[in-house]
Design a protein around this nucleic acid. Structure first.
Length: 568
DNA sequence: GCCGTTTTCGGCCCGACTGTTTTCAGTCG
């Protein structure tokens, strides 16, 4: 018996009750019980008070006792007997919920996807009270689409979709301002849709212009305050646009940024003070609506600090507000230590990258082109690297407001040797080591390679330590806890690669690294100037791991960077 | 089904949209 078993049992019970059209609050109670266990950081053996947890009562407690004593739940078995298994997939059909499924089952004996399809085709569905011709047509349509819809899209795909939608929004003159919201604003790794808040006095006009300008695959809903569509971009992606007034913007942005659990906690907080939060503001006890200029003012109203969107996860962030002012912010970042130029596979010159970093207000930066092993990236030979060092040193002379360091992103070769010898590495200020080849080696060999790199006295940092690409490949699956241990032992930096393709290390490993006292650098790995902007989303992602400012070496002042890292 | 220092009963986060109704239920986020 473990915690997951109990959680899954609660979720199954909720699912079956939903199919029976049970009281939503009863269903919610089982989901809540599952959630309470999920959020509790302790393992089952560490919990001696499980039956007295808030949210576990008589009914849910009995299920837990059953599981402990008999290894199964009587309630779940009863439900499984009562409800045909074939009904479960029906909950995935858009427009169908528990109530409607229960009605269909009772009226015409629907017990599976197939029987529903048949009933739609023979027009039996539209004869059921509460159902009509339109519903029947829509259901048939959705049944045919079932399984063809893509689930969640990775953040890097969502990012490009967001950018192209924003381009269209900028062209509409009736839009006063707008912001992306939802899971992309929270810097989630994957999103199932994109959300935008739009300030306008002319929602109907904006709606029509959007329908005109965007590649609409399907219009799901089109009202005065909301437009829901499926867009045919690189993939089919759902998009929601909410139209609000200027005064409503801050609360609407908060509401539609979510997460759902975060919002529930905020609303409960308001309710306990006799107030009511909605997307339009806070309704006070006397019925007046309070609005805010910024999200920050909204939080402050509840005596909370601004909670960054990426921290708004499961509601427990509200229990940790004292930690928030120690966390990393974008403003704290003083430099970017991983970027490429035309010397290898970057698109801009050293000077252009320097100018771009200067305009970001950085006090220092490191140029880190690829090395000779990586021929596809035009990696530098020792000779070319020495030429590049000379050029960087000379360009650096020209600037007194930014320090440009000489670095490299050196390949760790498949045989666990390094692409450059120590004599050459010695000449550099900052050495990154990373793996770009033979991902499918056994973990032991991968770890040998990483060990060879991290113990080398001239290596400062391991870049994108797992090599993953979100939603595409898992990387080379190193033993990350071991790597973190080595990083601590040899006093080396681990990277959070801020490129949304990577976000590498991931949140859980970042937490582990910080807990172990390992330093982290957030870098953009920019190959073009625009990618230097990924520092923003990289910082947002880092916040999800509750990284403190001091953990992240990019926040250190130049002098400290030189003293404790370069010259160490 | 769960909860309670205003409550052991009556709430449970809140609102938009659609379709089927003729004032609202169901679904969704």
């Amino acid at each position: 018996m473990n915690k997951k078993t109990i959680i899954r049992t609660f979720e199954k019970i909720a699912l079956y009750m939903e199919l029976l059209g049970e009281n939503p609050f009863k269903i919610g109670a089982f989901r809540k019980a599952a959630n309470v266990l999920e959020l509790d950081p302790r393992s089952l053996s560490e919990m001696d008070d499980i039956l007295s947890l808030k949210g576990i009562g008589k009914g849910t407690g009995a299920v837990i006792t059953d599981l402990f004593e008999k290894g199964k739940s009587d309630l779940l078995e009863e439900l499984e007997e009562k409800v045909p298994k074939g009904l479960i997939p029906l909950l995935k059909v858009p427009g169908l919920g528990g109530k409607k499924i229960a009605k269909l089952r009772e009226a015409i004996g629907i017990d599976s996807i197939e029987s529903l399809r048949a009933a739609c085709e023979s027009h039996e569905v539209s004869k059921v009270p509460g159902f009509g011709k339109k519903t029947e047509e829509k259901l048939l349509h959705e049944l045919n689409l079932l399984g063809t819809r893509k689930g969640k899209l990775p953040v890097w795909q969502i990012e490009s979709i967001v950018l192209s939608i924003e381009e269209e929004l900028q062209k509409i003159s009736e839009i006063k301002r707008f912001s992306v919201a939802g899971s992309f604003r929270r810097a989630e790794e994957q999103s199932s849709d994109v959300d935008f808040i739009i300030v306008t006095d002319e929602p109907a006009i904006v709606r029509e212009k959007l329908l005109e300008a965007l590649p609409i695959e399907e219009t799901v809903a089109a009202g005065d305050s909301k437009l829901s569509v499926a867009l045919d971009m690189a993939e089919i992606v759902d998009a929601d646009f909410r139209f609000v007034t200027d005064e409503q913007f801050a609360t609407a942005l908060h509401h539609f940024t979510g997460s759902k659990d975060h919002n529930v906690r905020m609303r409960q907080l308001a309710k306990s003070k006799g107030m009511k939060i909605s997307e339009y503001g806070i309704e006070m006890e006397d019925g007046t609506i309070q609005t805010f200029d910024t999200e920050e003012a909204f939080f402050n109203f509840f005596e909370l600090p601004f909670i960054p969107p990426s921290l708004r996860i499961d509601g427990t962030e509200l229990d940790r507000i004292d930690e928030i002012d120690k966390l990393l912010k974008l403003d704290d970042i003083r430099g970017d230590f991983h970027m490429h130029t035309t010397w290898s596979d970057g698109a801009y010159s050293i000077r252009e990258m320097v100018e771009a970093c200067r305009s970001k207000g950085y006090s220092h930066m490191v140029i880190t082109d690829h090395t000779q092993y990586l021929k596809v990236a035009n990696g530098l030979t020792p000779e070319r690297l020495r030429m590049q060092i000379a050029e960087i040193r000379s360009i650096n002379e020209e600037y007194d407001d930014i320090e440009v360091f000489c670095g490299t992103e050196m390949d760790i070769l498949p045989d666990a040797t390094l692409d450059f010898d120590d004599e050459l590495l010695k000449e550099l200020d900052f050495v990154i080591a990373s793996i770009h080849s033979n991902f499918n080696q056994p973990q032991e060999q991968i770890m040998d390679r990483l060990h060879a790199a991290i113990k080398n006295p001239y290596v400062h940092m391991i870049a994108h330590p797992t090599g993953r690409i979100i939603g595409q490949r898992d990387g080379y699956s190193p033993d990350v806890p071991q790597l973190i241990e080595w990083a601590k032992q040899y006093d080396k930096i681990l990277e959070l690669n801020g490129n949304p393709h990577r976000f590498d290390l991931s949140v859980d490993y970042l937490k582990m690294a910080q807990d172990a006292g390992v330093k982290v650098a957030i870098n953009t790995d920019a190959h073009v100037i625009a990618q230097l902007d990924h520092m923003r989303i990289g910082v947002q992602y880092a916040q999800k791991a509750w990284l403190k400012k001091e953990t992240v070496v990019n926040t250190w002042p130049l002098e400290q960077f030189i003293r404790d890292i370069i010259r160490k």
